[in-house]
Design a protein around this nucleic acid. Structure first.
Length: 572
RNA sequence: GGCCCCUUCGUCUAGUCUGGUCCAGGACACCACCCUUUCAAGGUGGGUACACGGGUUCAAAUCCCGUAGGGGUCACCA
């Protein structure tokens, strides 16, 4: 039992290719990265694509961009061009896709077979299923009984193979207590019998996770395995395999799992779950139409998705479906938070706080600090619920810390990616004005876009839906909002196009309020806001009016007054 | 159900190893008030936790035992 010592610290993040990186994975990657960097070590990224079905279906390496966005760049792994143009990845221990390392696994498996440490097994999936169900019925844990398969003679095996019977390779697990040493959880002993003769090579010739992970960690000189706690029990298998193969044991540390706010395990399937529930509640028989007018998914796919909890909708289809059903998708992927306007440095900070803390009541820190201070002995053992409200508060703080120019630049960056039409429509100059007017009140980079859609809407498309708050602004009081609105129009009309700015508007409207003895600028500000935006929320009124421009403001006020003309008779 | 692990405010956590400085600290959320042209933001103040039961000890959130609760895992997925 050799131990890894006096070597460069190497950690690895080893996800399966499943499209987007979710926050749990991101936190694991973050800790792996911080640990390696804090020890002047290397951070390796390896793609665990040994499940042919999954890899071909879900696929995608979208999470590489997510890691890049978070600033978690790998020293070794798939070659990738970052946003800033530089290239990361590569390395001398590749390839970094397990599907390209089959020869290595086969050689090792053959060796184990030759040494009598592994054997061919011909059980069919049906037989195994039956045995599993029987065990469950007896409330027993299922353990594969290798007696029969082990008893097979070489001649028997050759005959079965010649018949073309599919077979797997199973590891002949030594039956004894296994002690797992974990830097976070401490020491645990798994009693003999807990680890059965598990499969190391599947019928399709691919190795299982357990086998590939052990061989690759050794090949890539990984010294510290940081992974989610759900892998804890698997460690026993890995320890046994390492011994059989004569490989060193890396140090293990199992990270607490991240949960949803309601305490359920956070899963990539949560989005589909939310959508499926909404679809069922709405009683939808077939897929709703997407933005292009055709069904989002065809009838067959829809039925399959609705009936099978494990089927996931592709990202875009899920987004379209959410829009069609009017459901807010839970944010669980890094990309979701990016789209929602969270800052990567804030996500990094907050993610680190789920499961770790530097102590000293310190909560705000950056990636460099984390690298410097991160240590396994301060990782908590208990699962954490992901508190979006606190994340949002952190994001607001970070945004408020920015100077004006930085905020504008970041806002534009975000908009170019998610709201290109908005930027094109508003133009650079007014974008700057919008940034200034929204800075203090923006919790995310997305809010200014979403909350101010009226700025780029067509004047003729503004409407005033029945709404208590709108009604209050327009019709309550004496004189009411509509009356004040109508009364201030001449004053506004008197302002020149080129003088239509915050200073002038403020002076003119304050004069108006004083002359009419309305007492409070709100008496006219709120009706104006409603008239001009179709809602009761906007940036400060003078900024709003300036950004919109004289023509649009006057036209919208005119339309608003017209829209309420009749209903106004009674109260004016 | 078997096995393994965990248990401090609503949430994330500090404190636990090295019992006393903790009638338990911070943050977010919440409540109240202030400010206010909307929504926010901001300001001030406030309530809320050592799962339970036994020990050990002069002294326990901290050590021991038990109970309850929670989680993970039991795949030819990772």
């Amino acid at each position: 039992m050799s131990h890894v010592a006096d070597r460069t610290t190497v950690t690895r993040f080893a996800p399966s290719p499943s499209g987007n990186l979710h926050v749990g994975g991101a936190r694991t990657a973050l800790f792996c990265y911080a640990f390696a960097k804090g020890h002047d070590g290397r951070f390796v990224l390896r793609i665990e694509d040994t499940d042919q079905k999954r890899s071909s279906e879900a696929a995608g390496l979208g999470f590489l961009a997510d890691l890049d966005w978070l600033g978690l760049h790998w020293d070794e792994g798939p070659v990738f061009t970052c946003q800033d143009g530089r290239s990361v990845g590569g390395g001398e221990h590749g390839p970094y896709f397990q599907s390209e390392r089959l020869a290595t696994y086969d050689a090792a498996i053959d060796r184990l077979i030759a040494e009598g440490k592994a054997y061919l097994a011909f059980d069919t999936p049906e037989e195994l299923d039956a045995a599993r169900q029987a065990a469950r019925a007896e409330k027993r844990a299922f353990r594969y009984d290798g007696a029969a398969a082990r008893a097979l003679s070489d001649a028997d095996r050759e005959r079965l193979r010649a018949e073309g019977r599919p077979c797997v390779v199973r590891f002949a697990s030594p039956q004894r207590d296994i002690v797992i040493r974990d830097e976070i959880l401490g020491e645990a002993t798994l009693p003999a019998g807990e680890v059965d003769d598990f499969v190391i090579r599947k019928a399709d010739g691919f190795p299982t996770y357990h086998f590939a992970v052990v061989l690759d960690d050794a090949a890539m000189q990984v010294t510290h395995v940081l992974r989610a706690q759900e892998h804890f029990n698997n460690t026993a298998k890995h320890l046994l395999l390492q011994e059989a193969l004569g490989l060193p044991h890396p140090t293990y540390a199992h990270l607490p799992i991240i949960f949803n706010p309601d305490g359920s395990k956070m899963s990539k399937r949560d989005k589909d779950k939310a959508l499926r529930e909404a679809a069922k509640t709405a009683g939808l028989e077939k897929s709703p139409d997407g933005p292009d007018g055709s069904p989002i998914v065809d009838e067959k796919a829809y039925a399959r998705w609705l009936g099978d909890k494990t089927v996931q909708l592709p990202g875009e289809a899920a987004t379209a479906m959410a829009a069609a059903l009017g459901v807010a998708l839970p944010e669980i992927d890094v990309e979701d938070f990016r789209r929602s306007g969270y800052l990567p440095e804030v996500l990094v900070n907050f993610l680190a706080l789920n499961g770790w803390s530097p102590g000293d009541d310190l909560e705000k820190f950056d990636l460099a600090f984390l690298c410097q201070r991160f240590a396994l002995d301060r990782v908590v053992k208990t699962p954490a619920r992901f508190d979006r409200a606190k994340l949002l508060a952190f994001n607001l703080d970070a945004i408020q810390q920015m100077d004006e120019a930085t905020f504008l630049a970041r806002l534009l960056d975000h908009g170019r990616r998610y709201h290109p039409g908005f930027i094109a429509r508003l133009g650079e100059e007014r974008m700057a004005a919008l940034a200034a007017a929204s800075h203090a009140r923006s919790k995310t980079l997305d809010e200014p876009y979403v909350g101010n859609a009226f700025l780029v809407a067509d004047d003729e498309s503004i409407s005033w839906p029945p709404d208590k708050a709108i009604d209050k602004a327009l019709r309550k009081g004496e004189p009411n909002g509509l009356a004040n609105l109508a009364a201030c129009v001449p004053a506004l009309q008197a302002i020149d196009e080129h003088a239509w700015n915050v200073a002038t508007l403020e002076r003119v409207l304050e004069t108006f309020v004083a002359e009419r003895e309305l007492g409070n600028i709100g008496k006219v500000a709120q009706p104006l806001r409603v008239a001009v935006s179709g809602g009761t929320v906007s940036p400060p009124i003078f900024d709003t009016l300036e950004m919109l421009g004289r023509t649009s403001c006057l036209r919208r006020i005119e339309r608003c007054l017209a829209a309420f003309e009749h209903s106004n008779v009674a109260t004016s």
